[in-house]
Write a protein that binds this DNA or RNA. Structure first.
Lengths: 187, 187
DNA sequence: CCGATCATGTAAGTGGTTACATGATTAT
DNA sequence: ATAATCATGTAACCACTTACATGATCGG
């Protein structure tokens, strides 16, 4: 549903190839959207068929030829439309909460050890986001930062704060589970 | 991937029909897992074929016959195995963050209005969780609460805290965006 | 009479993943 | 030699959604 708009958003301003887009998904936008390379090419073909993109074939000598995708006026319209439309609530699907919910079917120790792996995962992701944040020049006055970057920093801030929240909650949960009664049917 | 385990978790203890399970998905576990009815029946058939469930057909006069699914020893083993296994990190797919990320392509006002819809959605979901919490007897001493409910309350607490965090972050974000430079290419 | 509740399923379609396929150039 | 980078794609499969199909009983 949203992949086409992610592509349009990335292509608005500067044209890119499928390969470039794939790199963008593995770097810049990786904290809120991921895709497989194969899906990018399929989506690009569809977007072109729909008239939201046009292709410019670039012949190269030192590397394989590539196709640069340019956003069309129709594509830009569609993107603006999407940006102004609130998204429908998406279905909940958080399996790790399920593991907690059914925690009574196993021992406190097992639940805690799974939560600890989750904590380790969160710390890693948080560290990655903090590394991203460290690349941001800190000395610039707020007003001097281009509008585009202000929005990007805002989403980065969301990622940072969310991860800090999740980490803290998980650590607290571990402490709470330690106080839970022990399972009598322990193996 | 996780649906089969959600079914096993719900069936551990008391057998249920596909219809009962569907109701459970729309009530008890709805804050972390949702499914369509059609998917439940398909999953049930597969689980039975795999030997993780057995079927008991119950003939009824006043309502259509039903099939009660019972968890088998193999099913319980598989469930315990899953409960003890940390889940792989799942791919990020948060389209609303994308709308923020590409916010520079539209006006601050448009971004804020979309965020405000999101805030309204969050308030609704938070209210639903608070209503759920209100049904919990508050006078019981912590130690007297059965282990099963302790885990369930823990997941409810996660939902509550997460929604409060998201709501606060969104409200702060709106205030911040008001300070962003205005877009010169406003339509 | 109508809608809700009980109860089971199939079929078509979409979005996404995994695996496969090709092949040149450049850096270690 | 080998791996990484550049570059494009197809095919099979899986999870999930939407829509369709059936039919009895019960309460307002």
């Amino acid at each position: 549903m949203s992949l086409p708009y992610m592509l349009l958003g990335l292509l608005d301003g500067h044209p890119m190839s499928g390969y470039d887009l794939n790199k963008a998904f593995n770097t810049t936008v990786q904290h809120f959207w991921t895709t497989e390379q194969s899906q990018i090419y399929r989506a690009l073909h569809k977007l072109e068929a729909d008239g939201w993109l046009t292709v410019e074939t670039v012949i190269q000598q030192d590397s394989p030829n590539k196709k640069l995708y340019h956003i069309t006026a129709a594509g830009r319209d569609a993107l603006h439309q999407w940006l102004a439309t609130p998204l429908p609530e998406e279905p909940a699907r958080e399996a790790w909460i399920g593991q907690l919910f059914f925690g009574h079917l196993t021992s406190n120790e097992v639940v805690i050890s799974v939560l600890e792996s989750y904590v380790a995962q969160l710390r890693q992701r948080l560290a990655a986001l903090e590394a991203l944040q460290a690349t941001v020049p800190g000395d610039m006055p707020l007003e001097a930062i281009p509008r585009q970057y202000q929005f990007q920093f805002l989403t980065l801030d969301y990622g940072l704060e969310l991860h800090r929240f999740e980490l803290q909650w998980a650590l607290d949960a571990i402490e709470r589970i330690r106080q839970f009664p022990r399972d009598s049917t322990n193996e």
